[in-house]
Computed example of a mutant assay.
Amino acid sequence: CAITRPREFPWTPHPISSLSPTPDHRRPCRLRDVTQGCRLEAPAEAISAWLGSETAQSVLAAAADLSSSPPEGKAVWTAALIEDLAVEVRCSEAFVAVRRFEEGPGDGARAEVGPLDAPALAMRTAALATARRLAGARAVREDVLHDGVLLLDRVLSSRDARARTLRPDALAAACLAVAAANAGAPLPGAATLDPGLGLTQEALDAAVAAVGAALGAGTNAISALRILKLYMERLGVDLGAGGEDAAAAVGGRALADAHAALESGHLLEVTPSLGAAALLIHARREAGLTPDWPQILVGLTELTLEDPGLQNALGALHGPR
Rank of each mutant, 00 (worst) to 15 (best):
C1L: 11
R7H: 03
W11G: 00
S20A: 05
T22P: 10
P23M: 03
D24W: 08
H25M: 00
R27F: 15
C29S: 14
C29W: 14
R30S: 02
D33R: 14
C38H: 04
A42R: 09
E45T: 10
I47N: 04
W50Q: 02
G52Q: 08
E54R: 11
E54G: 03
A64R: 14
A64H: 12
E72P: 00
K74A: 08
A75T: 09
A79H: 04
A86Y: 02
E93H: 11
A97R: 15
A97L: 09
R99L: 14
D107L: 14
A109E: 12
A111H: 12
E112I: 05
P115S: 14
A122D: 14
A126P: 01
R133A: 04
A135L: 00
D143F: 06
V144G: 02
D147L: 02
D147E: 14
D153W: 00
D153Q: 12
S157D: 09
A161V: 08
R162H: 07
L166Q: 09
L171N: 07
A172E: 02
C175M: 06
L176R: 15
V178M: 12
A180F: 06
N182E: 15
P186T: 00
L193D: 04
D194H: 02
P195T: 11
P195I: 06
Q201L: 04
Q201P: 10
A203E: 15
A209R: 06
V211L: 06
A214R: 04
A217H: 15
I222H: 11
L225F: 08
K229V: 06
L230K: 06
L230E: 07
Y231T: 03
M232W: 02
L235R: 13
G236W: 14
E244V: 11
A248N: 04
A249F: 07
R253G: 08
A254H: 09
A256E: 11
A258P: 03
E263Q: 04
L267E: 07
V270L: 02
L280E: 07
R284N: 15
E286L: 05
G288F: 06
G288A: 05
L289S: 01
W293F: 13
L297M: 13
V298Y: 10
P308F: 03
P308Q: 07
L314T: 05
G315V: 08
P320L: 14
P320H: 08
